[in-house]
Amino acid sequence: MDHLNLGRSGLRVSRACLGTMNFGTGHGLAASDEAEAGRIIGAFLDAGGTFIDTADLYHRGETEEIVGRALKGRREWVVLATKGAMPVGTEGRGLSRRHLTRALDASLRRLGTDYVDLYQCHQWDPATPIEETMATLDGFVKAGKVRYLGCSNFTAAQLVESQWAAARVGGTPFVSLQPQYSLIQRVIEAEILPACERHGIGTVVYGTLGGGVLTGRYRHGEAPDPDSRMGRLLGHSLPGANRWARSLLNDRNLDIAHELVRVAAELGAAPAAVALAWVARRPGVTSVLIGPRSVEQLRENLAAFDLDLPQEAVARLDEISHSDLGPMDGSFFHLTPR
């Protein structure tokens, strides 16, 4: 598997990043138990992957515990990333010095390690001065608890303001951003990707299968299978889940999925692999988050990184998915916290 430097840093990461949001039992949706999560992590490392991403929010800390136990004896070979800002249990939230200090220490305990390679702000905090946040994060780096810094779900303006704030306090800047990016969600092309290029920030993109719409399982005029992801979300009590699923299953997205299925059939590949391969080859993308629930899904996802898409296929996907690009409002994140 290919490896690239993350932004303007010396940190090398694999082109595929293993996302772990599906590891655990806390959300009541289909997920991977600890045994399967361990097999997925082992197969990912065996395939040459080195980059694993998690967050304290996932399954209320259970995911970090699962990842930590799975990495015992091989921690030094992994680029381990986690995130803080969101509430876990009865804890607070935000990017204040108080909350981030508590959040990082709790994550390190759950992960069973004394440092993380990449620590990320999970979302912007309008209630905390960004200078306080960047000075706090710099303290983590100086203390040896964190090697590099990143953020997730920031707008272009928030990203640039953070870099300026780091310079003002004489601190460590961000080297990465986690934004949403897929054939059905291309808004980062307008402002976020240019800002990342200008400021030397790598991208680790998520949501690349459009919530499952780009797997080819959903079609015009057909109700989702109750056992599918969209089927479960449509019938779930999680606030916003039903609304989010319906917003994804719109005519435009299903048109894109239909063309994707046609392209995949012509190439003899799975639609998901083609969708991932399209994202992986986009300018400005450093690493692509995948979130398999099984070893079989992992192998299907990894096939994307060996898939050479013909230019004609890329042009067809570009055309069907192009739309007027507007500002990213973070609505995906707020409805489905990562």
Rank of each mutant, 00 (worst) to 15 (best):
L302K: 04
D329A: 08
F154K: 03
T20L: 05
S96R: 13
F305I: 09
T203H: 10
L238E: 15
A106P: 03
G139M: 09
D306G: 15
A31K: 01
G26F: 02
I256E: 05
R12Y: 00
E259Q: 15
L289K: 07
G89E: 10
L183F: 02
R229H: 10
L177Q: 13
D46G: 14
A195T: 05
A127N: 13
A157H: 13
G24T: 03
G211A: 10
I40Y: 06
G73H: 10
V13K: 10
P126S: 10
L108R: 09
A264C: 06
E259Y: 04
V274N: 07
Q311P: 00
V213L: 10
P337R: 13
V141G: 03
E65D: 09
D255C: 06
G24I: 03
A275G: 01
R93S: 15
S294P: 01
Q163E: 12
I188Q: 08
R93H: 14
T50E: 14
G26M: 06
A277R: 08
I40G: 06
Q178P: 06
R243I: 05
A70L: 09
I184W: 01
L4Y: 09
A70V: 01
R338K: 08
A31W: 02
L317V: 07
A165C: 10
E132S: 04
R74A: 01
A195Y: 09
L177P: 02
L177Y: 03
A143P: 05
G221F: 09
S247Q: 12
R198A: 15
P310F: 01
L335G: 11
H99S: 08
T208E: 09
P310Y: 02
S162L: 07
R69M: 01
A143M: 14
E191N: 12
P327I: 06
S152K: 08
G48F: 08
V213P: 02
G150V: 12
L118W: 04
P224E: 10
G48S: 10
G284T: 08
G38D: 04
L111S: 04
I41A: 07
C151I: 07
A143I: 00
L29V: 06
Y148H: 15
